[in-house]
Design a protein around this nucleic acid. Structure first.
Lengths: 327, 327
DNA sequence: ATGCCTGCAAAAATTTTGCAGCGTG
DNA sequence: CACGCTGCAAAATTTTTGCAGGCAT
């Protein structure tokens, strides 16, 4: 937990205390800080043990009470992992997720699956229930335990960081699909002006991909282990595939010919659809770094056609401007 | 719980005891019987209270220990519903399901959703976990509590019976789709012999529907409340729709003409596909009445084309036999 | 100065363990 | 008659409550 985030969460906690006529105390600060400085899924016992190291005089009861407050204000979330203990995990600005638990080594994998969320929401709606909370726990034997290897000690990561990583990876995957589509359109287009449009789109997309790769490197540079940490965000591949049409649909008599204007228009339609998809997809998540990455990518997808259009107009000068500029 | 089932489960428990060198006792019988005679999700406390009514001398410890045995042999299943208590529900020959809990009145809704199961299995596979168990709890406010009505006391049903009801309903839905398809094919077919095939198929399907309705009535007659009990089995509508092709695909020059042989062949293909779907669908469930209903329906779907073929051959007599009989 | 907060102790609640005697196979 | 089983009591575990004194606002 970075110092900046800790400060933000502390402020948030203080605001909650103020609003409820509660008081700031040294103990609450200590417990909040200790909680935020861990990742993972700690029981009261676990947290109490950590607190004891820093101040032997703090009582368990205070830990119980403070954690209840942290849950009440949304900084922490209570979860059940089948061992009879109430456990706590970070909740503030962290993506909502579920757990897979190894019945042998008690290793915990966190994951989020929008499709699962969609189904859960739909079922609740069918029964006319207003959603409050939900938990999914999957118990199984992990690979290491099945093969009787000594399980590797894996670091627990900040869920938000992992989510950010997967958001960038998802954007990269989409960008790669788009690049391939643009390249294919460029190659197959019989109209030279249209060809140039798709070439420009591809170049723009390559720049975007380079930017995304930098972003991913930056995220991983901050925490080396993030690279090998398990996938967190599970997306149905179909959803990404449906973003792009089949080029064959635009062929006439087995030939693909699309002038600059039509090409720009198609590119814009695709960009908008993709932006729309990303916005709607991001919508389902709470305020997290990953969500912001998705929204930023959506914004770029929507606007980059304009950049290409302008670049082409400048190359061509006045006459083509009015025509290409019209929708 | 019917006497027959109670006996079956008791036998199963005794077999488990024998195999593990454990002993039959009056207390175990009492606890098993008490557990089986309730529906719902009881804590040790709940069951202990019921036992006490019948024999004040039985101790809680025995209840704890016996329930552990019932879980070990698969008659009971341990679940967590967020109130800190370990609860037990019927597991033997009951469909695996999840829970929706009202945070206000603690009403519990059980449901099964194959799509959810599919996703959970897929995710576990991605992480290379061998599935052991999984739980999904959804918390929400039910309609009654939201509108501040006094919640209606709803009877808890035998999950297996509800599942059977929904299996028949699902079969009925599919049969209705098929009937509509047959009627449409009959109406639109320009070939008089082919027309007759589809008419026969439709009649067969109507008989099947009548049978299914009888079956549903029988299930509901046994327990009146079953009719109004909430839906238990949630199926994606797309899966059913995908069983039938679009008749337009078989038109040539805007005309649908299909002779008897081709019609029978198409009907057989559809029947087999439907049977295949039902078999695969049923496959995912444990041994339950609902599963058996699905498998029976699958068997019928596969074989009823033969019945129609034979009926047509008998009407027509010798000459058509060889031709229509060939695949 | 008000009144929320802490820490201790005690209680409550749930589940497990030890053990003497009982009863099943 | 061996050995698992029962019921009681006690212990262990997790969480809540009561209360006197302390400290934040």
């Amino acid at each position: 937990m970075s110092a900046r985030k800790l400060k933000e969460e502390t402020e948030f906690f203080y605001a909650y205390l103020r609003q409820n006529g509660l008081k700031k105390t040294y103990q609450k600060d200590l417990i909040l800080e200790t909680f935020l400085n861990t990742e993972g899924h700690l029981s009261v016992e676990d947290i109490y043990a950590l607190i004891k190291k820093r101040d032997r005089k703090v009582g368990v009861v205070t830990v119980f009470r403070t954690l209840k407050s942290l849950v009440a204000c949304g900084i922490a979330r209570e979860i059940t992992l089948g061992d009879g203990l109430t456990r706590f995990e970070h909740h503030y600005r962290h993506p909502f997720h579920h757990h897979i638990i190894c019945t042998e080594c008690h290793r915990i994998i966190e994951f989020v699956c929008p499709e699962l969320e969609r189904i859960q929401g739909e079922i609740l709606r069918k029964y006319n229930f207003q959603p409050v909370d939900h938990q999914f726990q999957s118990y199984g034997l992990c690979e290491d335990c099945r093969e009787r290897r000594t399980p590797v000690k894996r670091p627990q990561h900040d869920t938000d960081k992992i989510f950010a990583r997967d958001a960038v990876r998802m954007a990269l995957e989409v960008a790669a699909h788009f690049l391939e589509f643009y390249r294919s359109a460029e190659r197959r287009n019989q109209d030279p002006e249209g060809k140039r449009v798709w070439a420009c789109m591809a170049e723009e997309e390559e720049r975007q991909i380079a930017g995304l790769i930098d972003r991913l490197d930056e995220i991983i540079r901050q925490e080396k282990d993030l690279e090998s940490a398990p996938v967190f965000l599970h997306l149905e591949p179909r959803r990404l595939e449906s973003l792009l049409p089949d080029l064959a649909d635009y062929e006439r008599d087995g030939e693909f010919r699309m002038d600059a204007r039509a090409s720009l228009s198609l590119a814009q339609t695709l960009g908008r659809a993709s932006a729309e998809f990303f916005r709607a997809f991001a919508e389902q998540f709470g305020d997290t770094q990953g969500k912001r990455i998705m929204l930023a990518f959506a914004g770029w997808e929507e606007s980059h056609v304009d950049a290409v259009r302008q670049a082409l107009e400048q190359n061509r000068g006045g006459p083509g401007k009015a025509e290409a500029g019209r929708q």
